[in-house]
């Protein structure tokens, strides 16, 4: 299987302070990887590192929903494909979107249960709705790889499972950081656990039991 990313003895940090140490990680196309660990373990930094390697092939779901709060949900989702249309078309869409685009984005929003919010301002949505809009933007972006930094953290478990299922169905490779152990084991086929900037466990999901992961959450 072709390797998408290969990290060898990689480290990373901010302002001279190392956050990641000795990272050895290979991710192949088609894998569904759950990156786990407690807050501050280095999950986001690892995702940023992977994202930097794959930038133009990735649909990103950042930790904060990162929506433009003054634009409609429609426009926020449309932003996932700004690079695929000419600039004049993008400007036209700001003022007067085509029926085809509206229909397509409405379809995408249906997947995350937000179709009724199509032309509402993103800033008026609740935290969970904003997160779903952010997921919709990544789905509409339609790249083969999706990287999500806790993409379902603001949703309940049922909604979270649903959204993760859609991401896995639409994207070839899925790399997500998450907290919920049972959600991760249900949707990922590989689990990478981090602690204090190091990878402490990297195993197929089916070989890992929920109880194995609990210690890493300081529980």
């Amino acid at each position: 299987m072709p390797a998408l990313v290969e990290l060898r003895k990689a480290s990373a940090g901010y302002a001279g302070r190392a956050v990641l140490h000795d990272i050895d990680l290979t991710i192949n196309a088609g894998e569904r990887v759950a990156v786990m660990g407690r807050s501050g373990a280095g999950k986001s930094t690892l995702l940023n590192l992977i994202h930097a390697r794959l930038a133009d092939r990735v649909a990103l779901i950042p930790q904060a929903a990162a929506l433009v709060k003054t634009l409609s949900v429609f426009h926020n989702v449309y932003m996932g494909r700004l690079d695929r249309y000419p600039t004049w078309y993008n400007l036209r869409t700001l003022v007067w979107p085509t029926r085809r685009d509206v229909a397509e984005i409405e379809g995408t929003l249906e997947l995350v249960g937000l179709a009724d919010k199509l032309f509402e301002q993103a800033g008026t949505l609740s935290g969970g709705q904003q997160q779903r809009a952010s997921v919709a933007r990544a789905l509409y972006n339609d790249r083969s790889i999706v990287i999500g930094d806790e993409p379902v953290s603001a949703l309940d478990r049922l909604q979270g499972a649903d959204i993760l299922g859609k991401l896995c169905a639409r994207n070839h490779t899925v790399i997500v950081a998450m907290h919920d152990i049972s959600l991760a084991l249900a949707h990922a086929d590989r689990v990478v656990v981090m602690d204090e900037g190091r990878i402490v466990l990297d195993a197929p999901a089916r070989s890992v039991a929920a109880a194995d992961l609990v210690p890493y959450y300081g529980g």
Partner: peptide, 22 residues
Amino acid sequence: SAERVLPAGTSTISRFAYARIP
């Protein structure tokens, strides 16, 4: 934050019109 999520290859004007101006 929204500008960072824009797909790579988005033109400067589109970037400005969608992520900055609003």
